[in-house]
Nucleic acid binder design. Sequence first.
DNA 1: CGGTGATGTGTACGCTCGTACACATGGGAT
DNA 2: ATCCCATGTGTACGAGCGTACACATCACCG
Lengths: 183, 183
Amino acid sequence: MPRRYDPERRQRIIDAAIRVVGEKGLAGLSHRTVAAEADVPLGSTTYHFATLDDLLVAALRQANEGFAKVLTARGGLSSPHADLPTELAALLGEWLAGDRTGVELEYELYLAALRRPALRPVAAEWADDAAALLSHRTDPRTARALVALMDGICLQVLLTDTPYDEEYARETLSRLIPGAAGG
Amino acid sequence: MPRRYDPERRQRIIDAAIRVVGEKGLAGLSHRTVAAEADVPLGSTTYHFATLDDLLVAALRQANEGFAKVLTARGGLSSPHADLPTELAALLGEWLAGDRTGVELEYELYLAALRRPALRPVAAEWADDAAALLSHRTDPRTARALVALMDGICLQVLLTDTPYDEEYARETLSRLIPGAAGG
DNA sequence: CGGTGATGTGTACGCTCGTACACATGGGAT
DNA sequence: ATCCCATGTGTACGAGCGTACACATCACCG
C-alpha cells in the first residue's frame, strides 16, 4: 500500500477516538479500535500518540472546547437580563435531552481523570473554565457551587435513569444565588 | 493441591475485588487479579461470579453498605440539634481527609454505572438511600439537592487536586436549606 | 453409611492488547 | 535537483484476558 499524504491525520485520529469512546466507552478504546475507526494503520496511531493517555488528553481537551462553545453560544450566559438559574437549567435540559452519547462521552472522559493523573490538569481546566464563564454573572464562590450542583444533578440523571426535571434544577440552582429568595 | 473447605470464599472474593479496585482501579480488575488477591485459583472466581459485572454489583453493594454505616454512625444526622450543613461538611471532610483509596474506590464503582447498565440499579439505590437518610432532617427535594451538591463538591476535589474547603462546603450546602439565610 | 451435587482445582484455547521495529515514501528545505 | 527526516505502513512478539471444560473432593441429605 502506497503512502498516503494526509496532513489532517492527527486530527482525524482524535475525532475517531471521541467516536469510539462515545460508542463503546473508555474500555473499548485501544490503539487498534481507533486505528480502525480512523481508517489508518495501527502504527499510525502509535506514531502520533505514543500512549493512550496522550490520546485521551487530546480527546478530552477537544471535548471540553466543544462544550465551551455550546455554553458561550447561548447568549443568555453573558446577558445580565436573563435569569441565571433558568438559563443553566435550560442548558442542562438541552444537553441531556438529545442523544445521550455526547453527555456520556464528556462525563466518561472527565471521570477518567479520577484514576489517570495525566488527565487531571485537563479536568481542572474544564472546571475552571466553566466557573470563569459563570463568574461574569455572579461571584466566583457561587460560580463554583453552581458548577458542582450541575455536575451532581447530571450524574444523578445519568446514573439512575431518572428523567431530568428542569423545574427542579432551576429551583435548586436558584437557591445557591446569594440574596435570591428561590422559587 | 487438595480441595480446601472454604465456606467464606465468596465473601473473600468480594473483599479482594474491593482491594484490587482500590489499589489498581477498575481497569486493573480481572478474574485473575482478584483470584491472586484472594489467594484462590482462577476457576474459583469464575465459579462464584460468572461475569465481572456480577462481581462488580456485589462489590458496589458492599461498598455502599460500608458508606451507609459511616453515615448512620454519625449521630448528628438523626439528631435535630446539630446544624445539618455543618454535619454534612464535616462528614465530607472526614471522608476526604484520610486515605483517598476509599473515596476513589467508591466513586469509581459508582461512576462505572455510567457505562454498565447492570450497575445502575445499585447506583440508584445509593442515591435513594442517602436521600432517605437526609429526609429525616429536611424535605425530600432538598435532600436530593444536598446529595447532588455533595457529589459535585467531592468530584471537584478528587478530579482537580484542589484541597477540600470545609467552610466553603458548609456555607454552600446551607444555601440549599429552605428558609436558612446561609453563612 | 452411601450417594451426589455443590464446590474447588488445573489447564488449555483463541483473542486483543501495547509495544517495538524495519522498511517505504515523498514534501519541503537547501 | 538532491537529500533527509517527518510521516506512513506492515508485521511480529509476548503478555494478559475471558471463557470453557474435565476432573477431584467432600459436606450434607436421606
